[in-house]
């Protein structure tokens, strides 16, 4: 169910953004499978999922924020801060990962609440607020670790979890799936998602409809904080250590996946399954390149570069579809 672009017939269903993207993802996969080594193996698929879980989680909660017409540049930094705090609690505080994880989630919520307060209560632009917290959160992480310290004394069970699998899929996959399911329900099946959309399309219109605009916007940012903290724990488990530079640049990848997934950067339109496809497209691109290029450095940079270019393209194409929709609407009214 797409709320705004329900057009008629299979033709429009085929032309819908998600379908085009799915086609692209398949094309990508076929190409890398044909050209690269060991692309379509169970091992590599697990690898792709494991490595894209954190970005996937961030994209999933970035999506509601962009849906409301906002943006959160601080999620990558928050991931770093939460990872460091989590590591410190486990290593120096003597907390079990479970307790430390609970506290970390609360810290994430508080950090999201901090963003939300400045954005809704003081009516400051999300861009500049989260740019400030982008620097603040990362800075705190660096200050705590004095720039160099890493925390790596974790119980073996925790580390096993980070690299283990359940029913043939990496553990992370199940968590990602659960969060994706939750966000999908939130956006597509509850009044919250409906409110996010209304706010993204017309903040004033939403206010006039009696929707609690501030509370809903705040909710999106708090959710992003909590999930960033969760991503931090998973990141730590995967790489077996907590460092201050965890998650650098993830905010860009998350935004890219969301925009690539068809969510309008101007707010209002977008789907969660589109976002997931966006995550998959970005993940396959970087993994696939590493399979076809022998020098690992080159592939990482090339995929980063292509991600940036992809974002620009996705933005431009989003604009194009907006023009087409406007053109159709005009013709529809006239005729």
């Amino acid at each position: 169910m797409s709320s705004s672009s329900k057009l008629n017939g299979w033709k429009s269903a085929l032309l819908r953004h998600e379908s085009v993207l799915l086609f692209l993802v398949l094309l990508e996969a076929f190409y890398f499978n044909a050209v690269g080594r060991n692309f379509a193996t169970a091992d590599n698929v697990g690898n792709i999922i494991r490595h894209s879980t954190e970005i996937g989680l961030l994209a999933l909660v970035m999506m509601p924020i962009i849906l409301t017409g906002g943006i959160d540049l601080s999620v990558g930094s928050l991931l770093g801060l939460c990872a460091v705090l989590f590591g410190k609690m486990c290593q120096e505080g003597g907390f079990s990962p479970l307790v430390a994880g609970g506290i970390t989630l609360c810290i994430g919520a508080a950090a999201g609440g901090f963003n939300a307060t400045l954005i809704t209560w003081l009516r400051l632009p999300p861009l500049i607020v989260t740019l400030g917290t982008y620097s603040l959160f990362r800075g705190l992480a660096e200050a705590i670790t004095k720039g160099t310290a890493t925390y790596s004394k974790f119980p073996q069970a925790f580390l096993d979890f980070g690299n283990g699998a359940l029913l043939g899929l990496p553990n992370q996959a199940w968590i990602l799936l659960a969060v994706a399911m939750g966000v999908w329900l939130l956006i597509h099946q509850t009044t919250f998602g409906r409110s996010f959309r209304a706010i993204g399309f017309a903040p004033e219109g939403a206010r006039y409809a009696g929707l609690p605009v501030e509370r809903r916007v705040a909710m999106a940012y708090v959710l992003a904080g909590i999930v960033a903290a969760l991503a931090a724990i998973l990141f730590t488990a995967r790489v077996t250590q907590a460092r201050a530079d965890a998650g650098i640049g993830y905010e860009l990848l998350a935004v890219t996946a969301v925009v690539l997934g068809g969510t309008s950067i101007f707010g209002g339109t977008g789907t969660v399954h589109g976002t997931l496809l966006g995550v998959v497209a970005v993940a396959i691109l970087s993994n696939g390149l590493s399979r076809i290029l022998s020098i690992s450095n080159v592939s990482r940079e090339l995929s980063g570069m292509l991600t940036g270019a992809l974002l620009v393209l996705a933005l431009a194409s989003g604009l194009l579809s907006k023009y087409i929709a406007a053109w159709r609407a005009r013709r529809g009214v006239a005729g």
């Binding site: 709320s3 009044t191 399309f201 939403a206 006039y208 409809a209 929707l211």
Partner: peptide, 18 residues
């Protein structure tokens, strides 16, 4: 203020009675 133009009219009509 009255109608959110991009949203279906059904969604518009139920917006105040969520």
């Amino acid at each position: 203020h009255g109608v959110i133009l991009e949203m279906p009219i059904a969604h518009n009509m139920t917006m105040a009675i969520h």
